[in-house]
Amino acid sequence: EEKRQVKQVAKEKLLEQSPNSKVQVRRVQKQGNTIRVELELRTNGKKENYTVEVERQGNTWTVKRITRT
């Protein structure tokens, strides 16, 4: 359940930055209360990979860091 929520948060964050792209989740890793989500962003056939680190704060998820990989 929490992985599902985190995927959603990570996707939304990337789509905010580039709204007309397609996002696909590649991998989800958990480390303590930080969850790392690896995503693939496609814009006009151009692929970019991103890693989004999401942290739990109380009962909400906040995006800590977005890295292009």
Rank of each mutant, 00 (worst) to 15 (best):
A10P: 01
G58D: 10
N33D: 12
R42I: 15
K7F: 13
N33V: 06
E38P: 00
R27Y: 10
Q5P: 03
N49T: 14
V25G: 01
T34M: 11
G32Y: 05
N49V: 13
R26E: 03
Q57C: 07
R42D: 14
T34R: 09
K46L: 10
T60D: 11
E16D: 05
V54I: 12
K30E: 10
R68E: 05
N59A: 09
Q8G: 05
V54Q: 00
V25P: 02
K64Y: 08
G58P: 02
Q57V: 14
K22Y: 13
L39E: 00
V25T: 03
I66L: 05
K64R: 12
N59W: 07
Q5D: 09
G45A: 07
V63P: 03
V37Q: 00
L15M: 09
E38L: 14
R26S: 06
V37R: 00
P19G: 03
I35H: 13
E16W: 03
E1F: 04
N33I: 06
W61A: 02
E38V: 11
V9E: 02
E38N: 07
K7H: 07
K30S: 15
A10I: 14
R56K: 13
V23P: 03
R27G: 09
Q8Y: 03
K22V: 13
T60S: 14
K30N: 10
R4C: 07
V25Y: 04
L39C: 11
R4S: 10
T34Q: 06
E16N: 05
G32T: 03
K3R: 13
T34F: 10
V9M: 11
L14I: 10
Q57D: 13
L39G: 02
N49D: 07
N49S: 11
N20E: 07
T62M: 12
K64A: 11
V37G: 00
E16I: 04
T60P: 01
T67P: 00
N44H: 11
T43V: 09
K47R: 13
E38S: 11
N44L: 11
V52R: 00
Q31A: 10
R68W: 04
E16P: 02
R56P: 04
K30R: 13
G45S: 09
R27P: 01
L39Q: 00
G32F: 06
R56A: 06
V63H: 00
Q24N: 11
E1A: 10
K22N: 09
E2F: 05
G32N: 05
S21V: 05
V63G: 00
E12W: 04
Q31P: 01
T67Y: 15
E12M: 09
W61P: 01
I35R: 03
V52E: 00
R27E: 03
Q31M: 15
L41F: 03
V52L: 07
E40D: 04
V6C: 05
S21K: 02
K64C: 08
S21H: 03
T43L: 12
T62L: 13
E2P: 04
V28I: 13
V23Y: 01
K22A: 09
R27N: 08
K47W: 10
Q24G: 04
V23S: 02
T43A: 10
I66C: 03
T67K: 07
Q29Y: 15
E55Q: 09
E40K: 05
K13I: 13
Q57G: 05
N49F: 14
Q29F: 15
V23E: 00
G58M: 05
G45Y: 08
R56Y: 10
V6P: 07
Q31D: 12
Q8S: 07
R68Q: 10
L41H: 02
T34L: 12
T62G: 07
V54E: 00
Y50P: 00
E40Y: 11
R65V: 07
Y50V: 08
T34H: 07
N20S: 11
L41E: 01
E16K: 05
E53K: 02
V6T: 03
N20V: 03
Q31H: 14
R56E: 03
K22M: 11
P19W: 02
Q8H: 09
T51V: 14
Q24E: 10
T51Y: 10
V54D: 00
I35N: 03
K22T: 14
E16C: 05
V25N: 01
K13L: 07
S18M: 13
L41G: 02
V52Q: 00
N44W: 09
R65C: 06
R42E: 13
S21N: 02
T60A: 11
K64N: 07
Q24L: 15
P19H: 04
R4M: 11
V25S: 01
N49G: 09
Q29G: 06
T62E: 10
Q17Y: 13
R27V: 04
V28M: 14
Q57I: 14
L39D: 00
T34A: 08
T69V: 11
V54R: 00
N44R: 09
N44Y: 10
E48M: 08
Q17R: 12
V28D: 01
S21D: 02
K11E: 06
V52C: 03
N20D: 09
Q8V: 06
E12N: 10
Y50C: 03
R56I: 06
S18G: 02
E16H: 05
Q31N: 11
T67I: 13
E40T: 13
L41A: 08
T62F: 14
R56D: 02
R65T: 13
V54H: 00
Q29I: 14
V37I: 07
E16Q: 10
V25E: 01
Y50H: 02
R65F: 08
R36Q: 10
L15Y: 05
T60R: 12
E1Q: 08
N59L: 09
R36M: 14
T67M: 12
I66K: 01
R68N: 11
T60V: 13
I66E: 00
Q57K: 10
E40P: 00
S21E: 01
K46R: 12
E48G: 03
V25H: 02
K11H: 03
Q29N: 11
Q24T: 14
E2H: 07
N44I: 07
R42N: 14
I35M: 13
V28R: 01
E48C: 06
